[in-house]
Design a protein around this nucleic acid. Structure first.
Lengths: 194, 194
DNA sequence: TTCCAACTTGACACTGTGTAAAGTTGATGG
DNA sequence: CCATCAACTTTACACAGTGTCAAGTTGGAA
């Protein structure tokens, strides 16, 4: 799969993470990451054949370290559908800022890079899955609004919780993170329940 | 402002529009547009110093031809705040598909091109202005939900009506255009009124 | 000692943008 | 009828960043 020393690989992933988190994603070149990792530019290509491969590996690396699955797991234990919805929004909403840098990089990279698009879509499918589960829980409790079919409710929640919406509210509108989470919960309730 | 024959300029704008509308925006190179317009690549640079300038000019060209202002004007004549909200969502919502190709191109171009970002932000500010007006009309009628301050309500509506949300629902979720407009109206009402 | 994996060094092909400079063409005016 | 000029073409090239290639170097295991 990947040749080379795993330690070096990790140093590269770490450097890439730092580089992406701090500053313009598109402006982080392979050479920059290499320098930051203290290896030659070619060493990067030795471990990751293309820029995209590196990016994708970084997202997986972060996911592992930040433990997304564990966080989202918490929301599964909620007793009522409404609580589950809240827990999910909180878990995902507070996860976004942690991955924002890399997410934006991946998003930017989609342009002219199908692999980056795939990696992103993959992440988004995971979020959608969580939305679906939350909606199902609501439905089970009989709390799902009649205005929506179950699928449509999932669509709506998924749209609402998109990374782009987070960016817009957070930076375009200047909402503090806490407000974002609180309001998202309120909006989701309004839209999905009666 | 721009040297060269206005007819040629228009042929270029027209070609660029067609090129962007049909197919991957990032993959439309200056040379492609030139070929489509039946002029040399350099003629493009003669009329538009940079790719971004061309893009921005295309958006303005489209706006003029499609008459955005006229469309949005209609929403100003609504009698009640609620009707005004509906009219605005309908006007904007049905305008999006007409500019989707170029909008996506501009959005993609933001990466590493501040001017493209400015052009896009400018458009979005115009939409926000419309949102603000609709919210004001609701407030005036006393129909604005107590859950939101006026500014916050504008933020919410603006987020809801974002181009990205349209893309996600339209293509990510497969909603027909008509459903998008209908549901958006319903969601806006739910979120903004009691 | 030999050998190998991991890495470095330096050169280079490729793509697309944007620049530069010299040539063509057709209309306008003296 | 010629000069001129604007608009455009043609050709060439600089530049940036990605990715490739081939020839070293180095430290440790067999």
């Amino acid at each position: 799969m990947s040749s080379g020393n795993p330690e070096t690989r990790q140093r590269i992933l770490d450097a890439a993470w730092r580089a992406l988190e701090s500053g313009d994603a598109k402006k982080t070149r392979m050479g920059d990451i290499a320098k930051l990792a203290g290896v030659s530019r070619q060493a990067l290509y030795l471990h990751f054949p293309a820029r995209t491969d590196l990016l994708v590996a970084v997202t997986q690396y972060i996911d592992r370290i930040k433990d997304v699955d564990g966080r989202l797991e918490k929301s599964r234990n909620a007793s009522s559908g409404g609580e589950r919805l809240d827990a999910f929004i909180e878990a995902w909403g507070d996860y976004i800022p942690e991955i924002a840098g890399v997410a934006r990089a991946l998003l930017d990279m989609r342009v002219g890079d199908p692999d980056a698009g795939m990696a992103w879509d993959d992440r988004m499918r995971a979020v959608r899955h969580g939305c679906d589960a939350a909606v199902k829980a609501l439905k089970k409790d009989g709390d799902l609004s009649n205005d929506h079919t179950q699928a449509q409710a999932t669509d709506v929640l998924w749209m609402l919780l998109s990374f782009e919406n987070w960016e817009r509210l957070r930076f375009g509108c200047g909402w503090p993170q806490k407000k974002y989470v609180t309001e998202m919960k309120a909006m989701a309730r309004r839209l999905l329940t009666d």
